[in-house]
Amino acid sequence: MDKFIGIDIGGTNIKYGLLDEKGNILHKDKIKTSPEGSEIIRNIKRIVESYKEAHEISAVGISVPGVVEESGFLTTGGAIFDFYGIHLKDLLEKELGVHVTVENDANSAALAEKWLGAGRDYRNYFTAVVGTGIGGAIIINNDVYRGAHATAGEFGFMINAPILNGDTRLASVSLTSSVQSGLVQRYLDETGQETNQQNLDGESVFKLAESGDVQAKAVIDAFYDHLAIGIYNVLVSLDPEVVLIGGGISANQSFIKELNRRVQGLQTGHRDMKNMTLAEILPCHFLNDAGIVGASYKAMKECRERTLVKGGQES
């Protein structure tokens, strides 16, 4: 059975795993992400060489932040500034000696759902990853839709709040609707607490609201409204079969239920939309493993496509 390596490069950790062609994770681990691009490349080489000692590796799939061209060229690299403007696929293939695929992290998460997760029964859907920031991916006819400049699905850049002092970024979905900025930082700002407050996360803000904290309740209310507006705009623009929400917060069923209720409320408030059907919002199946599973799936797909092309040429 063919073996594939999935590597998910994040701002904090590099998660990696060995998968078979059925999607079984045979081994997985993680290491800290170096701020140096050259060190990241060296660590990837160590990971792959370690797996090669005991396994025949068919291909390596890489999941990265930033704008990724279909060719594997990185226009941007998220928080990894050394990855801006490099052809990561070509570079890694020379270093590793195996076929390599490179994909945006949100797209990788969406592909994981397509392969073995909540997107298996859908041809057209939208995935939003709600975490420290906001990522998004569009699947059309079972494949990633990239757009003209490989930036389709960048949900976090959408504007869903009034623009103050010309600062478009502060009015974007990533700042109003992410767990870090839309919940934690906003709560700290509203209460006048220090921005480096220890142990405060999104779950903490929800618990404060449950205990009766009025400001926490107001922050959560605004968070839901902003996120619902962003998703509503996607629903009426793309008309997907379903919207899948990823990130740790998606494991909270009450969060998914309330988000659906808010979006339905927006539809109810629009008299011309009463007979229209909007897609349901569901949680993603994969959480922390989404990147390595999706990257492996892309690598596996490309391997099979290359084999078919080669077989056709030989015949």
Rank of each mutant, 00 (worst) to 15 (best):
D2F: 12
K3Y: 15
D8H: 00
H27A: 12
K30P: 05
S34A: 03
G37H: 01
E39F: 12
I40C: 05
I41W: 12
E49D: 15
I57P: 12
G66W: 09
G66T: 08
V67D: 03
G72T: 03
A79M: 08
L91D: 00
E93H: 07
E95V: 09
V98M: 09
V98F: 10
V98C: 14
V100A: 11
V102C: 15
N107R: 02
A110N: 03
L111K: 13
E113Y: 06
A118K: 04
A118Q: 06
G119H: 08
R123S: 10
Y125T: 02
F126I: 08
G133C: 08
N142T: 06
R146A: 13
R146M: 14
G153W: 05
M158P: 02
I163N: 07
T168V: 15
A171Q: 03
S177K: 04
S178H: 12
S178W: 13
V179P: 08
V184L: 14
T195I: 10
L200Y: 08
D201F: 07
L208H: 09
A209I: 05
G212A: 02
G212H: 04
V214E: 14
V219H: 10
L227I: 03
V243Q: 04
H270V: 08
H270P: 01
D272P: 05
M273H: 05
K274F: 10
K274N: 08
M276Y: 11
I281G: 01
N288E: 10
G294W: 07
G294P: 10
G294A: 09
A299R: 01
R304N: 11
K310P: 05
K310M: 12
E314V: 13
